[in-house]
Design a protein around this nucleic acid. Structure first.
Lengths: 217, 217, 217, 217
DNA sequence: GATGAATGAGGATTCATTCAT
DNA sequence: AATGAATGAATCCTCATTCAT
């Protein structure tokens, strides 16, 4: 028996109800977090009755986790792909572009993850062990392999990776606030382009030892 | 016996009830966000009846805002103080140390702010206009005044400030997740010390043009 | 045992839940007024959970207004019908009988209206504009068309209408108090019959100039 | 020991706190009824703390009853005075004028009584037995003594008295609604004057047998 | 799959009242 | 006589979930 995608086969239907629920839930969970999102509101956004939602997902919890998994998986895969070509000269730039492109497509995802991370709650650990830890390891390896990687103390690498993640995810997650501050939508194509350029320059500088290595307070 | 105010005599005059409520609320809001925190739980943490809480704060909302203000104000003031001494040679390091010291004392605050920022919600704008915008302006000025400031494009400055904020706040806000990843508590004195050192090095590198002085794509 | 639709087979399909709620609410609101009636008590009277009530009505307010409308509408219609036949000789008597019959059937209604009127509150204006104003206009017209209508000064007509309404509604609304005073239930068929006769006599006298035919100051 | 009015003795103080509470309570109870009035609101209207109110009245209940008694007593006394002079020729007019004058001075009272009457509740019976029953008896006697009293069937007298009470109290109690209908404040001096005139005319007509004594359906 | 109705648990908030000061 | 703080009970209402249809 061939593995067949349950939907998208033979019928020219649009996205399945389950997918539409996932979409609506992703947006709402990203905006208001888990606790701040009512199942009823998700259902309303989809245009169905709240009870119907339970035909597709066992519980609010289960839906939340499905949303997270569906969102994180492609990002990780893209990241892996980019990381694989570690030999290319502007390898760092490639990763940045890949990740930014991924996130630009699903701008809710970083907010969702940030929400979850900040809550540091029950769902976190499961997700962390399955998705983030490997990702973290990969990112760490990547950073270490940077040409002048020696520049960073080995113990600082986790902090560096964490910093990178915070910068990249933060740009999306804090978009509403940032918009307030710069008077422009941080998620507009132009701003995303600028942010991408900015990140590349950042990468270049971070892999170079700073000027006067004396100052240490 | 002199007529004595119940709480100014013999009793060590602990924090007022209102303050204790603010403390408990800060911790709980930071952990679970606004929607995820029940007034009853805050009251329980303080050891009072939920109804009593309303003798001190008009509503959950009002309490939330009070928590935010109380938390943000001293950080901003410290930041201002540090920024004032902009002539000192290791001026950037001073700011980093000041901010880290402030946040270390109230580790809930960054999570609280992050929660709020990610939610990008109703409370945000008010706070943003009164506290964050000025802070942002200050931070921006500060960054621009760095000795080798010419190194950054003027348009990139907001992004740079945003990046700094995300790195600094992110370390605290994501602490539970980060702990999971590095196997150590990111908020332990040693780790905070390491992070401070890391940030200083980061500052040094960021204010130095990256290696291939051609690249600025 | 056959799978059977609980309420479409064998059960005589009693009034819908919404109707039962309206009934219970009508009685309770009439007895204790809006503020004095707890949603929980209405639900209990119906035999459902208080939460279920919100599947049928958006709020206590909405329920209250629905009760008022449902109650007032048929009375107004009956009144209109009776008023239409203004040519009949004992036209006034017909109206009295119609109204009394209507109110006798829903004895809660007058108390409800009285409650509302006395409260003169927020709900009043909406209702007043939609239902009572037209009714008032009709009543006024009716009174004016009485054969010997010339007997009343035009400026007194609103007062006359108001007086009639107060007498008629008052009999029902004050029933508990009146019962206390006369030792009989004012809502018993006999008493209602007597009150109807009394009102007719009243109507006859009111449309006749009083003794000293000079007095109309 | 002489019976001394606790307040108004020796000190030129304004109304005592207890009186101010009674005033505020009278207004609020009249507007919103017992259940719809919060002790806090009464206190706020007086300008004191809700707790202070309990220095003057044992409970909300007790305050309510005090308000009712204080309001009803002078009306009854005035009524008695007027009724005593039953020999005067326009005796009915005198009563009307007295009562209207009394109520005009305390326009909250009728609404208060109406609220209570409509609620037909717990407080009612006590009040009824002590105040209203005697008043009713008096009114009944008064009506019966009208010159052409014979015109009314003895059994109708309670209904007639009830009608009178409903008309008179109703004008005040329904003032907000009536204002809505006639576009004028029913409690303005002019309207009260008109209502008084109207009531006198009413009295004149009611004590005259109606035209065609045949119609009784 | 979809839905209207039902519900127990819990949400924030208000209430009348008490009490130490 | 006044008050700020406290509280248990009750307020309206929302929530996630179930179930018969």
């Amino acid at each position: 028996m061939v593995a067949v995608n349950k939907r998208s086969f033979m019928t020219p239907t649009g996205p399945s109800t389950a997918d539409r629920i996932l979409d609506a839930a992703e947006a709402l969970f990203a905006q208001h977090g888990f606790a701040g999102t009512a199942v009823r509101d998700i259902a309303a956004a989809v245009g169905i009755n709240a009870a119907s939602l339970y035909n597709h997902f066992e519980s609010k919890q289960a839906l939340y986790e499905a949303v997270l998994e569906r969102g994180i998986q492609p990002v990780l895969e893209a990241l892996r792909g980019a990381a694989a070509s570690e030999l290319a000269p502007d390898w760092g730039d490639a990763i940045i572009e890949t990740v930014m492109a991924q996130l630009a497509e699903r701008p809710h995802l970083p907010r969702l993850v940030q929400h979850e991370a900040v809550s540091g709650g029950e769902h976190l650990v499961r997700i962390a062990r399955r998705w983030i830890l490997p990702a973290f390891a990969e990112a760490r390896t990547a950073v270490k392999q940077q040409p002048r990687g020696a520049a960073w103390d080995d113990d600082d690498l986790p902090l560096l990776v964490s910093a990178w993640l915070n910068i990249i995810f933060g740009h999306f997650a804090m978009a509403p606030l940032l918009a307030e501050l710069i008077g422009e939508d941080p998620l507009s194509p132009e701003m995303l382009e600028r942010q991408t350029r900015f990140l590349k320059e950042l990468g270049r500088r971070l892999s170079t030892r700073g000027d006067p290595p004396d100052a240490a307070e």
